[in-house]
Each structure stands twice: as structure tokens, then as C-alpha cells.
């Protein structure tokens, strides 16, 4: 997500100051968006230039309230209607696993084993965090759910790779005469 869309969504509810926007965005996403205030202001300036928001008058503490424009609402609606593309699986882990299988330069089973330990540890950690989270902290819990599903998907994929590799290995040995077949021939 761009910070832009997050700010637009918040401003669509009511006009806000920069600091308010930063903390609201962090709350709303269960701290899923990591922000510094400088990024918020520079984004607001760009959005103002593009006609998505407009600043009000500065108050005596030097704070400026921003509000959303019609053009800003239209941009927000377009973002809402646009599907996000799924991660393409061309991440470091996939590449490592696929390369290890293709080249044989690394042992794929070892890669799988190491990754499984890591990800299972992380999954335990997420589950523990979710159990100890407060019921009212919905954004945080939903964020953890997402992390849990991602970790789960990765573990399932690792199992699948391992399973496929072992059937490939089995077929390779099956095409050579087995021990019993050799015994029978003798």
C-alpha cells in the first residue's frame, strides 16, 4: 500500500493534522504500516500538488488540518476497486529451493529443513502473540492472522516440495531393477 491511499481513507472520514494521520494509520493497520512524520508531511505535500487534499489555515500551534477533495475521493475509490496482485512466488526462498533442485549445488532437503524450522518457530510465535493479544485489538489480530496464514502456506509448500522430491527419487530407483527382482532372476 502507498501511504497516499491510507491517508486518503482516513481523511475521507474527517479532516486531520499530520500527527493525527500518522497515529491513526498505525492504529488502523495494527502497526502494519511503519511511518515517520516526515514521510507523512512529504506525502501530504505531493497530494496537495496533485489536488487530492487541501490544507486549511494554520492554527496558533502551527498545525494544519488537511481535508480530502472530490478528486481525492475518486482516487480512493479507484484504489478500493483495484485487485492487488498476489505475490508472485519469486521470492528468495523459492529461488533458493528451485535453484538447489535444478543445479544440485545445494541439498534441497537441507534447504527445506532449515526453512521449516525457521518458519515453524515464527508460526509458534505469531500464535502465541495472538493468544495473548487483547480482544479489542482487532487490527493487530487480523494482521497476525494474515502472518499466520502466510507462514502456514509456506510450510505447506515446503511439505509439498519435499513430497514431490521423494516421489521423483522413488521413480528414479524404481526404473532400475529392484533388489527383489535381481534376487528372483538369480
Amino acid at each position: 500500500m502507498g501511504i497516499k491511499e491510507g491517508l486518503l481513507a482516513l481523511l475521507a472520514t474527517e479532516p486531520m493534522y499530520g500527527y493525527q494521520l500518522k497515529s491513526e494509520l498505525e492504529n488502523a493497520t495494527g502497526n502494519g504500516v511503519d511511518l515517520n512524520i516526515g514521510q507523512v508531511y512529504s506525502t501530504l505535500q505531493r497530494m496537495e500538488r496533485d489536488g487530492l487534499v487541501e490544507p486549511g489555515v494554520e492554527d496558533e500551534e502551527g498545525r494544519v488540518v488537511y481535508s480530502i477533495t472530490d478528486q481525492g475521493r475518486a482516487t480512493l475509490a479507484r484504489w478500493g476497486d483495484r485487485p492487488e496482485s498476489l505475490a508472485q512466488g519469486r521470492d528468495e526462498l523459492s529461488i533458493k529451493v528451485l535453484l538447489s533442485i535444478h543445479t544440485g549445488a545445494l541439498d534441497p532437503n537441507r534447504v527445506i529443513e532449515v526453512q521449516r524450522r525457521e518458519t515453524m518457530g515464527l508460526l509458534q510465535h505469531y500464535v502465541q502473540l495472538r493468544s495473548s493479544s487483547e480482544d479489542q485489538d482487532l487490527a493487530w489480530q487480523l494482521h497476525l492472522d494474515r502472518l499466520i496464514y502466510n507462514a502456514e502456506a509456506e510450510l505447506r509448500w515446503l511439505d509439498r516440495v519435499e513430497e514431490r522430491l521423494s516421489t521423483v527419487a522413488l521413480k528414479a530407483t524404481a526404473s532400475a531393477p529392484t533388489y527383489e527382482q535381481q534376487e528372483v532372476k538369480r
Binding site: 511503519d34 521449516r116 524450522r117 518457530g121 509458534q124 502465541q128 502473540l129 494482521h143
Partner: peptide, 17 residues
């Protein structure tokens, strides 16, 4: 053995960056 549960850290900020 695959994994042993670790204690929950006091700060969770490291998880979500």
C-alpha cells in the same frame, strides 16, 4: 525436533517492519 516456543518479547515492533 523442529521448533521450541520462544518467550513472547516485551516489544513486538520487530515483528512487523
Amino acid at each position: 525436533e523442529i521448533s521450541v516456543r520462544r518467550p513472547v518479547p516485551s516489544s513486538t515492533a520487530d515483528l512487523i517492519s
